[in-house]
Design a protein around this nucleic acid. Structure first.
Length: 1050
RNA sequence: GCGGAUGUGGCGGAAUUGGUAGACGCGCUAGACUUAGGAUCUAGUAUCGAGAGAUGUGGGGGUUCGAGUCCCCCCAUCCGCACCA
């Protein structure tokens, strides 16, 4: 009997062995290797690559990877050549912070973390082509990040051609005609002729060019984070704090590298039209780009040469402009302020400066400002209007100056009201009765309407009025139409070590790029990872940080988004040392077909990537303008925290006593929370003149003399009861209270014997009164099953709980509460994928992550639910093997009913995979397994295709069973089966029959039957129908083929 | 304040084009088997009601033979933006 036993073991479903076996097989045979040359159509599935943190993966991380892996595997089975790579965003602050603290080189930490990530990723059975792995911190990779930076430096943006062009084409234009006709993205304030240009020194020319380059070095207000010792990009700051680490950030004027992403604002906006991304993420990007269409208007300053430039989206309301406001930082403030107002203006600027960015943002209600003494002249009617400064006008947006139209703008309105400035209404709706705007409660939203009091545009609708006003301004030279963007240039320097060195050096104070042959410029070793004593970035510590010629190199490194902005192209040809990627590779792969990642990258990575992609496209390197055709944002997996309820003994004692009083029907005789003078007592019984105070023994002892004193003065009886006595002996306590009420004495202190000690007490969730006397404490979810606490485990969890006692639910169990929160260590709700995979196997884990719900929605992780999926996997296995180990698969042909189930399952799951509805596909697998089990179907004709459709979801078990079915090749390339409609056809259809829209009964009719009269006859024969129709007339009979029958009666 | 998304049993969710609301799974209840398991199987499980039946997709209205789905108004939650001129 020995061999039989052996067979038995062999035929059990053992995921630990099966997982390992096939993972090894796939790796050894390089099953997932993608070729850059193929007759097959290409499909590129990409995941946002992870930053390898020290904590490893929790169950939330692989969600997107599993979804993309299923799709990648599905596409392979559909005959596509699939590129599905993975790598690491390996530069980053945590490893560097750790280096500063411990001296461990960030490369060491990163390597260690990557190894751990790789182990975890491998255990889930992903179909990555690991031969294409990249790491952003690898010099052979960041060589190309540096190379791209140099290309950005060497290009400018020509709005006429709508693309980036080499900088030498710009210098040619300058040399021939100066900069008068150039329509470039720039921040150059000088106008010069060809002659002037040619006469400039090299240094002067370079300084001019810096205002045109797409990567430029300049002064700007930057986000300086003192705690991190570096500047940050706008998307790395939220609410005035750093996203990483939550440290305060301040505005500081510094010289930094910038990327002129603003040049691409319009194209970044337009590109959103053509890509398949979620509406919400497109909306976030639109907001971030912040396009507003309007006009620049010049206001002459009365008695000055200068004029003020104002941006407005509503030039039609110029006639309603009653004052102007400048940002306190505006450059003309000083020159236009009158002597009389100077002191007030300077004082205001000083306080405005002292207010941090955060304060200014938080405080949007206080109206503040000061008059400069100067007047602007309204170009449309010559009116003199006062010029104020106020910090509600931002220096960084538009021109830092506005015309205020208080009637139609709420902030201007508040300002006008506060400083009693005039308000003129210029827009009205047709049926509006005009009232004096000075009496208005709020400004009037005027996006639509008819102009009044507005010169030549009076009577026109708003849209038309805007158009006519811009025409007028342009004609007279008073202004012009303009589009403004909120998108700021990206700050590109980081005063940090663990990033790509910026490949620039300085000669005579002018920045020059390294020659491309010098790349990569590798990170030098340094002794410590902190800034230098003189406040220079860490690279200032490097020995010999200069070019061969001896010129000093830049001390900054690049920000996190540098390495991730074009990594998706590098995967196409990751080992190329001659080019970023070969032309052959880019022509074949072109772009990412499907990109999966979290929506937290909406304004960072996903905007920068689109910008880099457009630049690389402009310079002819790539073939598609948008890098990511379809984007799916996987939802986060939230933690499900469990709570125990710790009893507050004093509150519990009060609760117990009060409940007892109520049980005795004495609640009307007592007063709770009795106040006398400054004192407050728990209970008072006026009839017996008895005060009851419940406190811990320690407190009662401490307060004993004040109580003595109080009793002597007040003449009440005062009963002091230790908390423990009530909890342990409520009957005894209550008897004593009754006794005390009868007691005739006055001014006595009734004390209590102290017999009992109190343990630490926890109360089950559904115990009455729990909310009143307990507070929730997080408990490790591993100690809880179905909300029932493992009491022994809990006692062992923490020393202080070792002697804890429990108030259990009526069923004798301790029931925990729960809440959905972020998954985090501090809430003890983290699920570790390694444990789950060890227990249930990779396939169950993959299926369960997908089964939780739609890929895009956020959902809580239910520790229990995985059992159901595990049962399904085992039932699936049992279609092939009997519990005793017999191989059940038979070659007899399947019957109609079986084929119907199989073909419907193929159809349904294929449709579901294609719309990324993996949870419903898995439901269908379950239904099919349930039905085959019920029908005792073990036929090859059914199971062979079943294994193939399951292969992308549960690759390990599928591969195992595929081979046991007798196939020698991997299931990875086994074609996804095609369903045949003929098996899905029904001879009859069971119609739901409704009477007046309510389903009453079901009626089976031949599927081909469409004759309404005949059907109506059939329906009327039915007893249930007769019951409902009786005494009424059928006014309408609705028949929808293969859907429904509805009888309308009256 | 503006913009976006979401709202369905005790829980996660399904219903793809306006056509049987609650598929599938968890949990729960009862039972079977037993090598007593964190195993397997069977039946039940939206609410009220003994039943017939009534009610039911955040609330209110509307369109329709028929609405979770379409339209209008309101509420709640989450996310993003926020003196943006």
């Amino acid at each position: 009997m020995q061999p039989e036993k052996k067979q038995y073991i062999d035929m059990e479903f053992k995921h630990q062995e099966i997982d390992k076996k096939w993972q090894k097989y796939w790796a050894e045979h390089k099953i997932f290797k993608a070729e850059n040359k193929s007759g097959k159509p290409k499909y590129y599935v990409l995941d946002m690559f992870p930053y390898p943190s020290g904590a490893g993966l929790h169950v939330g991380h692989p969600l997107g990877y599993i979804a993309s892996d299923i799709y990648a595997r599905y596409k392979r089975q559909q005959g596509y050549n699939v590129l599905h790579p993975m790598g690491y965003d390996a530069f980053g602050l945590p490893a560097e912070q750790y280096a500063i603290a411990t001296g461990t080189h960030p490369a060491v930490t990163t390597e260690k973390n990557i190894r751990r990530y790789r182990e975890q990723l491998d255990s889930i059975g992903f179909s990555f082509d690991w031969d294409r792995e990249i790491r952003t911190s690898d010099p052979s990779y960041y060589k190309w990040t540096q190379w791209t930076f140099i290309q950005l430096f060497k290009h400018w943006y020509d709005h006429k051609e709508g693309k980036a062009r080499p900088i030498n084409e710009l210098t040619d234009i300058f040399a021939n005609e100066g900069n008068g006709n150039v329509e470039a993205a720039n921040d150059c304030e000088r106008n010069f002729s060809a002659g002037a240009w040619n006469a400039m020194s090299e240094k002067e020319q370079q300084e001019i060019l810096m205002h045109y380059r797409l990567a430029y070095n300049g002064y700007g207000m930057v986000n300086w984070c003192p705690a991190l010792g570096t500047v940050l990009a706008n998307d790395e700051v939220v609410d005035g704090k750093s996203v990483r680490g939550n440290h305060p950030v301040e505005k500081k004027r510094m010289r930094q590298w910038f990327l002129r992403i603003s040049a691409y604002a319009q194209r970044l906006l337009d590109g959103l039209e053509d890509i398949d991304w979620s509406p919400s993420i497109k909306e976030v990007q639109r907001n971030w780009i912040g396009r507003s269409q309007g006009a620049i208007v010049y206001f002459k300053v009365d008695g000055h040469e200068d004029s003020l430039e104002v941006f407005t989206t509503r030039p039609d309301t110029l006639w309603g402009a009653t004052f102007m406001v400048l940002a306190p930082e505006h450059e003309l403030v000083e020159s236009i302020t009158t002597e009389k107002q100077r002191a007030a203006v300077e004082a205001y600027i000083k306080t405005a400066k002292n207010r941090s960015e955060r304060e200014r943002m938080a405080d949007t209600k206080t109206v503040s400002g000061v008059f400069t003494g100067a007047y602007g002249i309204n170009p449309v009617n010559g009116d003199k209007i006062p010029i104020w400064i106020a910090d509600y006008v931002l220096s960084g947006y538009g021109t830092g100056a506005i015309m205020a139209v208080p009637a139609h703008d709420s902030r201007d309105f508040a300002f006008a009201k506060h400083f009693q400035l005039p308000i003129i209404q210029v827009v009205t709706s047709e049926d509006e009765e005009l009232k004096d705007p000075q009496t208005w409660e709020e400004s009037y939203d005027s996006k639509e309407g008819i102009m009044i009091h507005s010169g030549f545009i009076t009577g026109l609708p708003v849209k038309e009025a805007i158009r006519r006003t811009i025409e007028f301004l342009t004609e007279k030279g008073y202004g012009y139409g303009k589009v403004n963007y909120r998108l700021r240039d990206a700050i590109f320097s980081r005063q940090r070590y663990w990033g790509e060195p910026i490949p620039m050096y300085y000669k005579d104070g002018v920045a020059y790029p390294l020659d491309e042959s010098q790349l990569p410029l590798e990170l030098p070793p340094i002794d410590e990872f902190k800034p230098t004593e003189t406040g220079e970035p860490p690279l200032g510590r490097a020995k010999n940080w200069k070019t061969k010629e001896g010129y000093p190199l830049d001390l900054n490194t690049m920000p996190g988004f540098a390495g991730s902005s074009a990594y998706y192209y590098r995967y196409m040809d990751p080992h190329n040392d001659k080019a970023y990627f070969s032309e052959e590779a880019i022509r074949y792969w072109q772009d990412v077909d499907l990109y999966l990642g979290g929506d937290e990258h909406a304004t960072g990575h996903l905007i920068y990537s689109r910008f880099w992609a457009k630049f690389l496209y402009d310079i002819g390197l790539t073939v598609k303008e948008e890098p990511f055709k379809k984007l799916i944002n996987q939802g986060k997996i939230q933690g499900r925290s469990s709570f125990v309820y710790r009893v507050n003994n004093e509150k519990y004692a009060e609760y117990l006593l009060w409940e007892r009083i109520r049980k005795e029907g004495m609640e009307k005789e007592f007063v709770r929370n009795f106040h006398e003078g400054h004192r407050k007592f728990d209970f008072y019984h006026p009839g017996g003149d008895l005060i009851i105070e419940i406190k811990s023994r320690e407190k009662l002892e401490k307060l004993s003399s004040p109580y003595e004193e109080y009793v002597q003065n007040s003449k009440h009886k005062l009963m002091l009861i230790p908390v423990a006595e009530i909890i342990k002996d409520i009957d005894g306590v209550f008897a004593k209270i009754k006794e005390a009420i009868q007691d005739d004495r006055k001014g006595v202190l009734i004390k209590y014997d102290k017999k009992h000690r109190l343990p630490l007490l926890f109360v089950s969730k559904d115990v009455e009164g729990r909310k009143v006397f307990s507070s929730p404490i997080h408990v490790d979810i591993n100690l809880v099953e179905n909300d029932i606490l493992n009491i022994e485990g809990f006692k062992a969890w923490r020393e202080e709980y070792a002697n804890a006692q429990f108030l259990l639910s009526p069923d004798g169990k301790y029931r925990c509460g729960y809440e959905i929160e972020k998954m985090s260590k501090s809430m003890y709700n983290v699920q570790n994928p390694d444990d789950l995979i060890a227990r249930y196997g990779a396939d169950t884990f993959r299926l369960y992550e997908m089964f939780l719900g739609p890929i895009e929605s956020h959902k809580p992780w239910d520790t229990q639910g995985i059992e159901g999926v595990y049962r399904f996997i085992k039932r699936f296995w049992r279609l092939f093997y009997a519990p005793g180990g017999d191989f059940l698969v038979e070659d007899t042909p399947a019957n109609e009913a079986e084929l119907k189930v199989m073909h419907y399952t193929i159809k349904k799951t294929q449709e579901d995979i294609e719309r990324f509805s993996f949870n419903t596909a898995i439901s269908q697998f379950m239904i099919a397994v349930n039905e085959f089990t019920a029908m005792h179907s073990h036929k090859r004709e059914l199971l062979d295709p079943f294994v193939r459709i399951m292969a992308s979801f549960a690759p390990h078990i599928a591969e195992e069973l595929w081979h046991r079915l007798g196939h020698a090749e991997s299931v990875v390339y086994a074609p996804f089966p095609e369903y045949d409609e003929k098996y899905l056809k029904e001879d009859s259809f069971e119609y739901p029959v409704s009477i007046n829209g309510k389903m009453r009964f079901k009626l089976s009719l031949p599927a081909g039957l469409t004759d309404k009269t005949k059907i109506q006859e059939e329906v009327e024969k039915h007893p249930t129908a007769q019951k409902w129709i009786a005494g009424k007339t059928i006014v309408r009979f609705i028949f929808v083929h293969k859907r429904i029958i509805n009888v309308v009666v009256k």
